[in-house]
Simulated scan of single mutants.
Amino acid sequence: MAQKAAKTLAAHNTAILNRTLLLTLVIHAFFILLRGVVWWSTFTRKSLILYILLCFPSFFIQFQFERIGRPTYGSSPGELRKSGEDLEAKGLTEYMWDVLYWTYGCVILAAVLGDWAWWWWIVIPAYSAWLAYTTFTGARGGMSKFAGEDNAGAPQAGSKRQQKMEKRGGQKVQYR
């Protein structure tokens, strides 16, 4: 059984992408049905512009997932050319899923509660800024350890062997 891991990943990606596509269609149909048909008086040009503008990132993310995650098959049955990237990877892929699901929630809230619910979408850029800040401060804190300084600015003690030698009164290490 050649390429078992690749075939498993391809089947898993296909299931995830099909489920996500169905969920996207249901949620956006719910929005259009509820705002356009049921509450036709609340479906204005402003609502349509907000809907298109704030759903565009989720459409783009969905397109990217389809492009990188959808497996490709050869001409003969069962011939897997490319299994696609792992859609459960950490990092950017994980953040893209967060944006997608948060947008789904905002679409549902906007369909039920009205246009003011789109303000919940502001959480996504705020979350991005918080992630960038914590990454930067973590990297800055990590770089100070390479410079030989602790977070408090005091010199670092060195290795355990050096600490033991200093404790016994042996060879002293001078810090500058």
Rank of each mutant, 00 (worst) to 15 (best):
R168C: 02
R67E: 14
W130V: 14
P57I: 05
P77A: 11
G153M: 03
Y51I: 00
E79D: 09
W119R: 06
G170T: 06
Q156C: 08
Q3G: 10
G78E: 11
W130M: 09
A15M: 08
L34K: 01
S75V: 13
G170S: 01
L34P: 00
L22P: 00
F146S: 10
L33K: 00
V99G: 00
N18A: 12
R161N: 06
A6K: 13
P155A: 01
G141L: 09
K82L: 08
T93C: 06
T103W: 02
L48P: 00
L92S: 14
K172V: 12
Q162H: 06
S58V: 03
G170E: 14
K82G: 00
Y175D: 00
G69V: 00
A10E: 04
A110I: 03
D150N: 15
H12S: 14
P155C: 05
R45M: 13
I16G: 01
Y95M: 09
I108C: 06
F56K: 04
G170L: 08
T137Y: 14
G141C: 07
T93D: 01
T14W: 08
N13D: 05
Q171W: 14
G169Q: 05
A2T: 15
S144M: 12
A147P: 00
K167C: 04
I49L: 14
R81Q: 15
G114S: 09
I122C: 11
Y51S: 03
F56T: 15
P155H: 02
T8I: 14
L92I: 08
C106R: 04
P125G: 05
C55Y: 01
